[in-house]
């Protein structure tokens, strides 16, 4: 495959990754900070590059996300993605968020990520999915 080497770089030398959308969210994140009384909080890190994201949700009695906040540090992709995620999920119910998929999350970033950078782009998403699982486990059992 004589063209293999050049083809590798045709993908990775495209300039689209750090577009305005990502950099705007990185520089001026939506809801970066903490809630006073989150319904649920969880964090995770990407050991590859040391990205850390902490996510907090305020969920109302109808299981709707009233507010979503994040905190963390790391590369622009991981932090911008967490910001985009908090904006996206507010107002949605936990059941609606179960339908929220990784490809959907990647679409919201509006850039094409290489396989290794998808871990950065999906860090907040992964935390959200863990939270949804935990909330389901916590679901109060119906009293007899």
């Amino acid at each position: 495959m004589p063209r293999e080497f050049a083809r590798l770089y045709e993908v990775s030398m495209s300039d689209e990754l750090y577009d305005e959308h990502i950099l705007d969210h990185f520089e001026s994140p939506y809801h970066k900070g903490h809630l006073d009384h989150p319904t649920i909080a969880h964090e995770d890190k990407n050991p590859l590059c040391g990205d850390e994201v902490h996510l907090e949700l305020l969920v109302d009695e109808n299981r709707r996300v009233k507010e979503a906040w994040f905190d963390g540090h790391g590369c622009a992709i991981s932090q911008a993605a967490a910001s985009i995620l908090t904006h996206e999920i507010e107002g949605k119910t936990i059941d609606e968020l179960k339908e929220f998929t990784a490809p959907h999350m990647l679409d919201l970033l509006k850039v094409r990520l290489t396989a290794s950078r998808q871990k950065c782009g999906l860090l907040g998403f992964k935390i959200l999915k863990t939270m949804i699982y935990t909330l389901d486990e916590r679901k109060p059992t119906v009293s007899p």
């Binding site: 770089y9 990775s12 495209s14 590059c49 990205d51 590369c75 622009a76 992709i77 950078r117």
Partner: peptide, 21 residues
Amino acid sequence: VHPHDMAELLDRKGVAVRAGH
């Protein structure tokens, strides 16, 4: 500029480096 972003942007210029711990 986080090192991962740095490495990715250097890659776009054809410069291969390592970033991480």
